[in-house]
Amino acid sequence: MLAILEYDFMRRAFIVGILLAAIIPCIGIIVVLKRLSMIGDALSHTSLAGVAAGLIIGINPILGAVVTCIVAAFGIELIRKRIPKYAEMSIAIVMSAGIGLAGVLSGFVKNNANFNSFLFGSIVAISDFELILVACISCIVLLTFILLYKELFFISLDERAARLAGIPVGPINFIFTILTAVTVSIAARTVGALIVSSLMVVPVACAMQVGKSYFQTVVYSILFAILFTVSGLFISYYARLKPGGTIVLIGVICLVLLLAGKKILTLFRQSPGQA
């Protein structure tokens, strides 16, 4: 066995990392295609308020984050409906409120190290409870995503046409909002609240460069996320880096390479014709 896998905390980190890498892109692809990429950022930052509240009142901070994220997600939807012409403002309002609340509440947290671990994540410090929570939520998110695959696809493509086709757009958006909030809050624990939205967006952006259909884009997004997570954990372990940041940086480097490779390929294909 590899030395890295001899440690229990690393085995847990790999299990949790791979589970999250499987579900985050499922949420990420819909968020990206609905042009709501910043929602991940707003929710993850708001989750910090729940983390602080959880630490203050003595409940599991992840549960606090989940509750805050759900409230924030519906807050965004509510504001979006009230001011549809400036929908993006809703994300900024909720994010500011979340950060403000987190900032105030963090002053009352006795163990600051625990709170700070949510900023940049601590995938190697996962408890038994958190492992079970991640496993259960991952199963629910994956199953829901598979069952609502065609509905979510159509809603993100054209919400009006989806409604006309008989899709219950409201209830499905409601379910998706909860899934997003829950996924973001548990992911914040592993990769950190500050970079969770990158993990939602970067694998999807990479997959969109190589996918030849929606199905392929979904599959590649998951594969890219797993690749970034596994390689990020290995590199961070041996190079003594922060795992969350390493995972995201590997993703961004991969995206830059893919974009550059695609550009070079395009130029290479064009050049014989021009000659």
Binding site: K150, F153, L157, A161, A207, M208, G211, S213, Y214, F215
Partner: peptide
């Protein structure tokens, strides 16, 4: 939108 023609029609 990253989807094929048939995926879009079948939706």
């Amino acid at each position: 939108f990253p989807a094929t023609v048939e995926e879009i029609v079948r939706a």
